[in-house]
Design a protein around this nucleic acid. Structure first.
Lengths: 193, 193
DNA sequence: CGTCTATTTGAATGTACTCAAAAGCGGTGG
DNA sequence: CCACCGCTTTTGAGTACATTCAAATAGACG
Protein backbone atom coordinates (compact mmCIF):
# COMPACT_ATOMS: atom_id res chain seq x y z
CA UNK A 1 0.00 0.00 0.00
CA UNK A 2 1.20 3.45 -0.91
CA UNK A 3 0.77 5.97 1.88
CA UNK A 4 2.91 8.66 0.35
CA UNK A 5 0.14 11.06 -0.61
CA UNK A 6 -1.71 10.92 2.70
CA UNK A 7 1.50 11.37 4.69
CA UNK A 8 2.36 14.36 2.55
CA UNK A 9 -1.11 15.75 3.21
CA UNK A 10 -0.72 15.27 6.96
CA UNK A 11 2.66 16.95 6.95
CA UNK A 12 1.11 20.17 5.71
CA UNK A 13 0.22 20.83 9.33
CA UNK A 14 2.18 18.47 11.57
CA UNK A 15 5.46 16.57 11.46
CA UNK A 16 5.38 12.87 12.22
CA UNK A 17 8.16 10.63 13.50
CA UNK A 18 8.65 7.26 11.88
CA UNK A 19 6.96 5.56 14.79
CA UNK A 20 3.95 7.89 14.60
CA UNK A 21 3.69 7.38 10.86
CA UNK A 22 3.63 3.69 11.51
CA UNK A 23 0.86 3.93 14.09
CA UNK A 24 -1.15 6.09 11.76
CA UNK A 25 -0.84 3.99 8.62
CA UNK A 26 -1.61 0.82 10.53
CA UNK A 27 -5.07 2.26 11.21
CA UNK A 28 -5.85 3.03 7.56
CA UNK A 29 -7.92 0.82 5.33
CA UNK A 30 -7.88 0.85 1.57
CA UNK A 31 -11.10 0.88 -0.39
CA UNK A 32 -11.98 1.10 -4.08
CA UNK A 33 -15.27 2.53 -5.31
CA UNK A 34 -16.43 2.07 -8.87
CA UNK A 35 -17.82 5.00 -10.83
CA UNK A 36 -21.40 5.67 -9.70
CA UNK A 37 -20.78 3.58 -6.60
CA UNK A 38 -21.61 4.94 -3.15
CA UNK A 39 -19.24 5.69 -0.32
CA UNK A 40 -22.04 6.90 1.92
CA UNK A 41 -25.79 6.74 1.51
CA UNK A 42 -28.32 8.89 3.23
CA UNK A 43 -29.42 7.35 6.52
CA UNK A 44 -26.31 5.27 6.93
CA UNK A 45 -24.04 6.46 9.73
CA UNK A 46 -20.77 7.97 8.53
CA UNK A 47 -18.12 5.93 10.33
CA UNK A 48 -14.95 7.03 8.54
CA UNK A 49 -12.82 9.93 7.62
CA UNK A 50 -11.92 9.33 3.98
CA UNK A 51 -8.90 10.49 2.02
CA UNK A 52 -8.98 10.25 -1.78
CA UNK A 53 -5.83 8.90 -3.41
CA UNK A 54 -7.28 8.51 -6.91
CA UNK A 55 -10.46 9.50 -8.71
CA UNK A 56 -13.19 11.78 -7.54
CA UNK A 57 -16.01 11.78 -5.00
CA UNK A 58 -19.07 13.97 -4.99
CA UNK A 59 -20.76 15.01 -1.75
CA UNK A 60 -24.35 16.10 -2.14
CA UNK A 61 -27.56 16.75 -0.35
CA UNK A 62 -31.04 15.68 -1.43
CA UNK A 63 -33.67 18.28 -0.56
CA UNK A 64 -37.30 17.69 0.35
CA UNK A 65 -38.30 17.87 -3.30
CA UNK A 66 -35.83 15.14 -4.18
CA UNK A 67 -33.44 17.53 -5.89
CA UNK A 68 -29.71 17.00 -5.49
CA UNK A 69 -27.41 19.83 -4.44
CA UNK A 70 -23.69 19.31 -4.73
CA UNK A 71 -21.74 20.49 -1.71
CA UNK A 72 -18.35 19.65 -3.07
CA UNK A 73 -16.04 17.44 -5.03
CA UNK A 74 -13.14 15.54 -3.47
CA UNK A 75 -10.39 14.71 -5.90
CA UNK A 76 -6.93 13.35 -5.16
CA UNK A 77 -5.46 14.74 -1.93
CA UNK A 78 -8.85 15.81 -0.52
CA UNK A 79 -10.85 14.49 2.40
CA UNK A 80 -14.53 13.58 2.44
CA UNK A 81 -17.09 12.70 5.11
CA UNK A 82 -20.46 13.68 6.49
CA UNK A 83 -19.01 15.38 9.52
CA UNK A 84 -22.36 15.81 11.23
CA UNK A 85 -23.05 12.11 11.06
CA UNK A 86 -19.46 11.24 11.93
CA UNK A 87 -19.42 13.32 15.10
CA UNK A 88 -22.93 12.52 16.32
CA UNK A 89 -23.34 8.90 15.08
CA UNK A 90 -26.68 9.96 13.66
CA UNK A 91 -27.82 9.00 10.15
CA UNK A 92 -26.08 10.91 7.38
CA UNK A 93 -27.83 13.79 5.69
CA UNK A 94 -25.35 13.81 2.86
CA UNK A 95 -24.61 11.26 0.17
CA UNK A 96 -21.17 10.59 -1.20
CA UNK A 97 -20.72 8.79 -4.50
CA UNK A 98 -17.97 8.40 -7.07
CA UNK A 99 -17.85 10.39 -10.30
CA UNK A 100 -14.95 8.21 -11.45
CA UNK A 101 -13.41 4.92 -10.37
CA UNK A 102 -11.95 6.00 -7.06
CA UNK A 103 -9.51 4.77 -4.45
CA UNK A 104 -9.50 5.95 -0.88
CA UNK A 105 -7.84 5.45 2.47
CA UNK A 106 -10.18 5.43 5.43
CA UNK A 107 -9.82 5.70 9.17
CA UNK A 108 -12.63 4.50 11.37
CA UNK A 109 -14.01 6.69 14.09
CA UNK A 110 -12.87 4.45 16.94
CA UNK A 111 -9.42 4.20 15.44
CA UNK A 112 -9.27 7.97 15.03
CA UNK A 113 -10.11 8.36 18.70
CA UNK A 114 -7.39 5.88 19.54
CA UNK A 115 -5.03 7.86 17.34
CA UNK A 116 -5.91 11.12 19.15
CA UNK A 117 -4.85 9.42 22.38
CA UNK A 118 -1.68 7.82 21.11
CA UNK A 119 -0.57 10.70 18.90
CA UNK A 120 -2.26 13.86 20.20
CA UNK A 121 -0.68 15.82 17.35
CA UNK A 122 -3.50 14.56 15.16
CA UNK A 123 -5.88 16.60 17.23
CA UNK A 124 -3.90 19.54 15.92
CA UNK A 125 -3.90 18.26 12.37
CA UNK A 126 -7.66 17.96 12.22
CA UNK A 127 -8.11 21.28 13.98
CA UNK A 128 -6.03 23.06 11.36
CA UNK A 129 -7.52 21.05 8.58
CA UNK A 130 -11.08 21.98 9.53
CA UNK A 131 -10.19 25.55 10.32
CA UNK A 132 -8.95 25.87 6.76
CA UNK A 133 -12.01 24.12 5.40
CA UNK A 134 -14.08 26.55 7.44
CA UNK A 135 -12.29 29.49 5.84
CA UNK A 136 -12.88 28.07 2.36
CA UNK A 137 -16.57 27.61 3.09
CA UNK A 138 -16.81 31.13 4.42
CA UNK A 139 -15.37 32.40 1.16
CA UNK A 140 -17.91 30.39 -0.75
CA UNK A 141 -20.72 31.93 1.28
CA UNK A 142 -19.53 35.50 0.82
CA UNK A 143 -18.95 34.89 -2.84
CA UNK A 144 -22.40 33.43 -3.34
CA UNK A 145 -23.87 36.42 -1.54
CA UNK A 146 -22.04 39.00 -3.58
CA UNK A 147 -21.89 37.60 -7.12
CA UNK A 148 -24.11 36.75 -10.04
CA UNK A 149 -24.24 33.24 -11.45
CA UNK A 150 -21.98 34.30 -14.27
CA UNK A 151 -19.32 35.63 -11.90
CA UNK A 152 -19.55 32.47 -9.81
CA UNK A 153 -19.09 30.34 -12.88
CA UNK A 154 -16.11 32.30 -14.16
CA UNK A 155 -14.53 32.21 -10.73
CA UNK A 156 -15.07 28.46 -10.44
CA UNK A 157 -13.53 27.97 -13.87
CA UNK A 158 -10.60 30.08 -12.87
CA UNK A 159 -10.11 28.49 -9.46
CA UNK A 160 -10.54 24.87 -10.51
CA UNK A 161 -9.66 24.84 -14.22
CA UNK A 162 -9.18 21.07 -14.30
CA UNK A 163 -12.71 20.55 -12.96
CA UNK A 164 -14.43 22.25 -15.84
CA UNK A 165 -13.60 19.38 -18.17
CA UNK A 166 -13.40 16.63 -15.62
CA UNK A 167 -16.86 16.92 -14.07
CA UNK A 168 -20.25 16.73 -15.82
CA UNK A 169 -21.66 20.22 -16.27
CA UNK A 170 -24.83 19.15 -14.51
CA UNK A 171 -22.78 18.61 -11.35
CA UNK A 172 -20.98 21.90 -11.71
CA UNK A 173 -24.30 23.67 -12.16
CA UNK A 174 -25.57 22.07 -8.98
CA UNK A 175 -22.43 23.11 -7.10
CA UNK A 176 -22.87 26.69 -8.34
CA UNK A 177 -26.54 26.70 -7.41
CA UNK A 178 -27.89 27.22 -10.91
CA UNK A 179 -29.74 25.08 -13.45
CA UNK A 180 -27.81 23.07 -16.04
CA UNK A 181 -29.71 24.93 -18.77
CA UNK A 182 -28.54 28.27 -17.51
CA UNK A 183 -24.97 27.07 -17.13
CA UNK A 184 -25.14 25.99 -20.72
CA UNK A 185 -25.96 29.52 -21.85
CA UNK A 186 -23.24 30.94 -19.60
CA UNK A 187 -20.66 28.62 -21.12
CA UNK A 188 -21.70 29.54 -24.61
CA UNK A 189 -21.42 33.19 -23.70
CA UNK A 190 -17.99 32.85 -22.11
CA UNK A 191 -16.65 30.66 -24.94
CA UNK A 192 -16.51 33.77 -27.12
CA UNK A 193 -13.65 35.01 -24.95
CA UNK B 1 -13.98 39.34 36.27
CA UNK B 2 -16.69 36.76 35.62
CA UNK B 3 -15.46 33.80 33.63
CA UNK B 4 -18.48 31.62 34.25
CA UNK B 5 -19.97 31.81 30.76
CA UNK B 6 -16.75 31.14 28.89
CA UNK B 7 -15.86 28.19 31.13
CA UNK B 8 -19.30 26.77 30.58
CA UNK B 9 -18.78 27.19 26.85
CA UNK B 10 -15.44 25.40 26.99
CA UNK B 11 -16.90 22.56 29.01
CA UNK B 12 -19.24 21.73 26.16
CA UNK B 13 -16.32 19.84 24.64
CA UNK B 14 -13.61 19.36 27.28
CA UNK B 15 -13.40 19.14 31.05
CA UNK B 16 -10.91 21.39 32.81
CA UNK B 17 -9.23 20.91 36.17
CA UNK B 18 -9.05 23.88 38.52
CA UNK B 19 -5.44 24.41 37.60
CA UNK B 20 -6.18 24.37 33.88
CA UNK B 21 -9.06 26.75 34.36
CA UNK B 22 -6.68 29.06 36.16
CA UNK B 23 -4.09 28.94 33.37
CA UNK B 24 -6.76 29.61 30.80
CA UNK B 25 -8.47 32.52 32.51
CA UNK B 26 -5.13 34.16 33.28
CA UNK B 27 -4.63 34.50 29.52
CA UNK B 28 -7.95 36.22 28.88
CA UNK B 29 -8.40 39.94 28.52
CA UNK B 30 -11.61 41.83 28.95
CA UNK B 31 -12.69 44.41 26.44
CA UNK B 32 -15.78 46.57 26.01
CA UNK B 33 -16.93 47.85 22.63
CA UNK B 34 -19.52 50.57 22.29
CA UNK B 35 -22.37 50.21 19.83
CA UNK B 36 -21.08 50.93 16.32
CA UNK B 37 -17.53 50.49 17.55
CA UNK B 38 -15.11 48.19 15.76
CA UNK B 39 -13.51 45.04 17.06
CA UNK B 40 -11.70 44.43 13.79
CA UNK B 41 -11.26 46.61 10.75
CA UNK B 42 -10.40 45.47 7.27
CA UNK B 43 -6.62 45.40 6.75
CA UNK B 44 -5.82 45.10 10.42
CA UNK B 45 -4.46 41.71 11.41
CA UNK B 46 -6.82 39.67 13.56
CA UNK B 47 -4.77 38.85 16.64
CA UNK B 48 -7.41 37.43 18.97
CA UNK B 49 -10.03 34.80 19.38
CA UNK B 50 -12.98 36.65 20.86
CA UNK B 51 -15.78 35.34 23.07
CA UNK B 52 -18.87 37.48 23.58
CA UNK B 53 -20.18 37.72 27.13
CA UNK B 54 -22.70 40.49 26.52
CA UNK B 55 -24.12 42.32 23.51
CA UNK B 56 -23.75 41.47 19.87
CA UNK B 57 -21.07 41.55 17.19
CA UNK B 58 -21.59 41.54 13.45
CA UNK B 59 -19.03 39.97 11.10
CA UNK B 60 -19.23 41.20 7.54
CA UNK B 61 -17.44 41.42 4.26
CA UNK B 62 -17.19 44.45 1.99
CA UNK B 63 -17.26 43.48 -1.69
CA UNK B 64 -15.51 45.22 -4.57
CA UNK B 65 -18.55 47.47 -5.09
CA UNK B 66 -18.39 48.62 -1.49
CA UNK B 67 -21.46 46.63 -0.49
CA UNK B 68 -21.53 44.95 2.92
CA UNK B 69 -22.45 41.26 3.28
CA UNK B 70 -23.12 39.93 6.75
CA UNK B 71 -21.49 36.58 7.44
CA UNK B 72 -22.85 36.21 10.90
CA UNK B 73 -23.85 37.62 14.24
CA UNK B 74 -22.15 36.72 17.49
CA UNK B 75 -24.32 37.17 20.54
CA UNK B 76 -23.65 36.04 24.10
CA UNK B 77 -21.85 32.68 24.25
CA UNK B 78 -20.55 32.87 20.68
CA UNK B 79 -17.07 33.30 19.32
CA UNK B 80 -15.91 35.74 16.66
CA UNK B 81 -12.74 36.25 14.61
CA UNK B 82 -11.42 36.54 11.09
CA UNK B 83 -9.95 33.08 11.09
CA UNK B 84 -8.09 33.56 7.84
CA UNK B 85 -6.28 36.58 9.18
CA UNK B 86 -5.78 34.97 12.59
CA UNK B 87 -4.12 31.87 11.17
CA UNK B 88 -2.03 33.55 8.48
CA UNK B 89 -1.24 36.90 10.12
CA UNK B 90 -2.35 38.55 6.92
CA UNK B 91 -4.64 41.59 6.83
CA UNK B 92 -8.25 40.83 7.64
CA UNK B 93 -10.78 40.52 4.87
CA UNK B 94 -13.65 40.74 7.31
CA UNK B 95 -14.83 43.53 9.55
CA UNK B 96 -16.30 43.02 12.98
CA UNK B 97 -18.31 45.73 14.66
CA UNK B 98 -20.81 45.97 17.50
CA UNK B 99 -24.57 46.16 16.95
CA UNK B 100 -24.99 46.85 20.68
CA UNK B 101 -22.75 47.83 23.56
CA UNK B 102 -20.74 44.66 23.84
CA UNK B 103 -18.36 42.98 26.27
CA UNK B 104 -15.92 40.32 25.24
CA UNK B 105 -13.11 38.11 26.51
CA UNK B 106 -10.15 37.78 24.22
CA UNK B 107 -7.18 35.51 23.95
CA UNK B 108 -4.20 36.60 21.93
CA UNK B 109 -2.71 34.35 19.30
CA UNK B 110 0.61 33.91 21.11
CA UNK B 111 -1.18 33.13 24.34
CA UNK B 112 -3.39 30.63 22.58
CA UNK B 113 -0.31 28.90 21.24
CA UNK B 114 1.11 28.85 24.74
CA UNK B 115 -2.18 27.42 25.94
CA UNK B 116 -2.07 24.67 23.33
CA UNK B 117 1.31 23.66 24.73
CA UNK B 118 0.43 23.87 28.39
CA UNK B 119 -3.07 22.44 28.11
CA UNK B 120 -3.22 20.38 24.92
CA UNK B 121 -6.88 19.68 25.56
CA UNK B 122 -7.60 23.08 24.06
CA UNK B 123 -6.41 21.76 20.75
CA UNK B 124 -9.33 19.40 21.06
CA UNK B 125 -11.72 22.12 22.13
CA UNK B 126 -11.02 24.26 19.11
CA UNK B 127 -11.07 21.26 16.81
CA UNK B 128 -14.55 20.32 17.95
CA UNK B 129 -15.64 23.91 18.05
CA UNK B 130 -14.64 24.52 14.44
CA UNK B 131 -15.89 21.18 13.26
CA UNK B 132 -19.29 22.16 14.56
CA UNK B 133 -19.01 25.61 13.02
CA UNK B 134 -18.12 23.88 9.77
CA UNK B 135 -21.26 21.75 9.96
CA UNK B 136 -23.39 24.83 10.60
CA UNK B 137 -21.88 26.60 7.61
CA UNK B 138 -22.44 23.56 5.44
CA UNK B 139 -26.10 23.63 6.39
CA UNK B 140 -26.25 27.27 5.47
CA UNK B 141 -24.77 26.53 2.04
CA UNK B 142 -27.16 23.67 1.29
CA UNK B 143 -30.06 25.70 2.53
CA UNK B 144 -29.14 28.68 0.39
CA UNK B 145 -28.82 26.38 -2.61
CA UNK B 146 -32.18 24.70 -2.13
CA UNK B 147 -34.49 27.44 -0.88
CA UNK B 148 -36.12 30.65 -2.00
CA UNK B 149 -35.57 33.90 -0.16
CA UNK B 150 -38.91 33.49 1.54
CA UNK B 151 -38.05 30.03 2.85
CA UNK B 152 -34.69 31.27 4.04
CA UNK B 153 -36.34 34.12 5.90
CA UNK B 154 -38.94 31.91 7.55
CA UNK B 155 -36.27 29.44 8.55
CA UNK B 156 -34.09 32.18 10.01
CA UNK B 157 -37.04 33.52 11.96
CA UNK B 158 -37.78 30.06 13.24
CA UNK B 159 -34.18 29.20 14.10
CA UNK B 160 -33.21 32.49 15.72
CA UNK B 161 -36.53 33.96 16.91
CA UNK B 162 -34.83 36.43 19.25
CA UNK B 163 -32.78 37.85 16.38
CA UNK B 164 -35.73 38.96 14.37
CA UNK B 165 -36.47 41.76 16.82
CA UNK B 166 -32.97 42.27 18.11
CA UNK B 167 -31.16 43.00 14.84
CA UNK B 168 -31.92 45.71 12.27
CA UNK B 169 -33.73 44.20 9.33
CA UNK B 170 -31.17 45.62 7.00
CA UNK B 171 -28.59 43.38 8.64
CA UNK B 172 -30.83 40.33 8.52
CA UNK B 173 -31.46 40.97 4.82
CA UNK B 174 -27.75 41.10 4.22
CA UNK B 175 -27.24 37.86 6.12
CA UNK B 176 -29.96 36.19 4.05
CA UNK B 177 -28.51 37.54 0.83
CA UNK B 178 -31.48 39.66 -0.17
CA UNK B 179 -32.22 43.39 -0.35
CA UNK B 180 -33.82 45.14 2.63
CA UNK B 181 -36.68 46.19 0.34
CA UNK B 182 -37.44 42.62 -0.54
CA UNK B 183 -37.21 41.48 3.07
CA UNK B 184 -39.73 44.16 3.90
CA UNK B 185 -42.23 42.68 1.49
CA UNK B 186 -41.54 39.17 2.81
CA UNK B 187 -42.21 40.26 6.36
CA UNK B 188 -45.43 41.95 5.40
CA UNK B 189 -46.52 38.79 3.64
CA UNK B 190 -45.61 36.50 6.55
CA UNK B 191 -47.21 38.81 9.12
CA UNK B 192 -50.61 37.65 7.94
CA UNK B 193 -49.87 34.25 9.43
C1' DC C 1 -26.82 -0.12 -32.95
C1' DG C 2 -30.20 1.33 -29.64
C1' DT C 3 -31.27 3.27 -25.29
C1' DC C 4 -30.58 6.36 -21.70
C1' DT C 5 -28.85 10.42 -19.94
C1' DA C 6 -26.68 14.92 -20.59
C1' DT C 7 -26.60 19.11 -23.08
C1' DT C 8 -28.42 22.72 -26.06
C1' DT C 9 -31.82 25.96 -27.53
C1' DG C 10 -35.73 28.93 -27.14
C1' DA C 11 -40.09 30.88 -25.31
C1' DA C 12 -42.68 32.14 -21.42
C1' DT C 13 -42.56 33.03 -16.58
C1' DG C 14 -41.24 34.37 -11.93
C1' DT C 15 -38.39 35.71 -8.24
C1' DA C 16 -35.86 39.15 -6.58
C1' DC C 17 -33.54 43.65 -7.77
C1' DT C 18 -33.13 48.68 -8.82
C1' DC C 19 -34.62 53.09 -8.31
C1' DA C 20 -37.34 56.57 -6.27
C1' DA C 21 -40.19 58.62 -2.96
C1' DA C 22 -42.63 58.63 1.39
C1' DA C 23 -43.11 57.37 6.07
C1' DG C 24 -41.26 55.89 10.48
C1' DC C 25 -37.92 55.84 14.14
C1' DG C 26 -34.06 56.98 17.12
C1' DG C 27 -30.55 59.74 18.73
C1' DT C 28 -28.87 64.36 19.68
C1' DG C 29 -28.81 69.05 20.77
C1' DG C 30 -31.06 73.22 21.85
C1' DC D 1 -38.52 67.56 26.69
C1' DC D 2 -39.38 68.49 22.22
C1' DA D 3 -37.74 69.25 17.49
C1' DC D 4 -34.93 68.11 14.05
C1' DC D 5 -31.77 65.36 11.29
C1' DG D 6 -30.25 61.14 9.49
C1' DC D 7 -30.91 56.49 8.86
C1' DT D 8 -34.01 52.60 8.33
C1' DT D 9 -38.14 50.72 6.62
C1' DT D 10 -42.09 50.74 3.56
C1' DT D 11 -44.30 50.95 -0.84
C1' DG D 12 -44.66 50.70 -5.76
C1' DA D 13 -43.33 50.59 -10.66
C1' DG D 14 -40.34 48.88 -13.94
C1' DT D 15 -36.65 45.61 -14.95
C1' DA D 16 -33.31 41.79 -15.12
C1' DC D 17 -31.39 37.61 -13.95
C1' DA D 18 -32.33 33.06 -13.73
C1' DT D 19 -35.95 29.38 -13.87
C1' DT D 20 -39.33 26.24 -15.87
C1' DC D 21 -40.93 23.65 -19.48
C1' DA D 22 -40.56 21.51 -23.83
C1' DA D 23 -38.30 19.79 -27.71
C1' DA D 24 -34.23 18.77 -30.36
C1' DT D 25 -29.50 17.22 -30.43
C1' DA D 26 -25.44 15.08 -28.82
C1' DG D 27 -22.90 11.83 -26.28
C1' DA D 28 -21.96 7.64 -23.38
C1' DC D 29 -22.56 2.94 -22.33
C1' DG D 30 -23.84 -1.66 -22.88
Amino acid sequence: MNYESIIKNISKYITLTEKETEIFTSLLKYKAIKRKGFLLREDEVCRHETFVTKGCLRTYYVDQNGLEHVLGFSIEDWWAEDLYSFLTNKPARLCIDALEDTEVLQIEKLNLEKLYEEVPKFERFFRLSFQNAYIAQQERITFNLSSTAEERYLSFKNKYPYCEQRFPQKQIASYLGITPEFLSTLRKKSAGR
